[in-house]
C-alpha cells in the first residue's frame, strides 16, 4: 500500500473529552498563548524605553476595548498555566495521583485561575480609577 494511504488507528476524536485530557492540552495551548503575551510585554517595554510618544501609542492600544480583551486572555492564560504548572510540579514530586485527587486538583485549578484573574482585574481597574 502506498505510504500516504495506510489506514489510521482511532485517534483523539473517538474519546469523550474529559477534564484530565482537556486541562492537559489547555496547558500547552496557554503556553503558546503566553508566547504571544510575551511579545506584547516586549513591545510595551520597548515603547516605554523609546519615550513618552511611543509609550502613549502602546498604552492607548492596550487600553482600548480590544486591548483589554487581549489582556484579559493573557492574564487568564498566565494564571491557568501557573496553577496547572504547580499541579504538574506536585505530580513530579510524586503526590496526588489517585483519580479523585486528579479531578479535585483539576477543578481547583479552574476555579483558582478564574478567581485570581478576577482579583487581578479588580485591583488593576481600581488602580486605574485612582488616576495618575
Amino acid at each position: 500500500m502506498p505510504k500516504g494511504k495506510r489506514p489510521l488507528s482511532p485517534h483523539l476524536q473517538v474519546y469523550r473529552p474529559q477534564l484530565t485530557s482537556t486541562l492537559s492540552i489547555f496547558h500547552r495551548i496557554t503556553g503558546v498563548a503566553l508566547f504571544a503575551g510575551m511579545a506584547l510585554l516586549v513591545t510595551w517595554l520597548l515603547a516605554a524605553g523609546a519615550g513618552p510618544g511611543p509609550f502613549a501609542v502602546a498604552q492607548g492600544l492596550l487600553g482600548s476595548w480590544f486591548g483589554m480583551v487581549v489582556l484579559l486572555g493573557f492574564s487568564f492564560a498566565l494564571f491557568f498555566h501557573l496553577c496547572n504548572g504547580v499541579r504538574h510540579l506536585v505530580w513530579d514530586a510524586g503526590w496526588g495521583f489517585e483519580l479523585p485527587q486528579v479531578y479535585a486538583s483539576g477543578w481547583a485549578v479552574v476555579v483558582v485561575s478564574v478567581l485570581l484573574t478576577g482579583a487581578a482585574w479588580a485591583y488593576g481597574l481600581t488602580m486605574m480609577g485612582g488616576g495618575s
Binding site: 516605554a48 519615550g51 498604552q59 487581578a120 482585574w121 485591583y123 488593576g124 488602580m127 486605574m128 495618575s132
Partner: peptide, 9 residues
C-alpha cells in the same frame, strides 16, 4: 502590572 495599568510614562 495591574498597579501600573493606565499610569503615565
Amino acid at each position: 502590572m495591574a498597579m501600573l495599568a493606565g499610569k503615565s510614562h
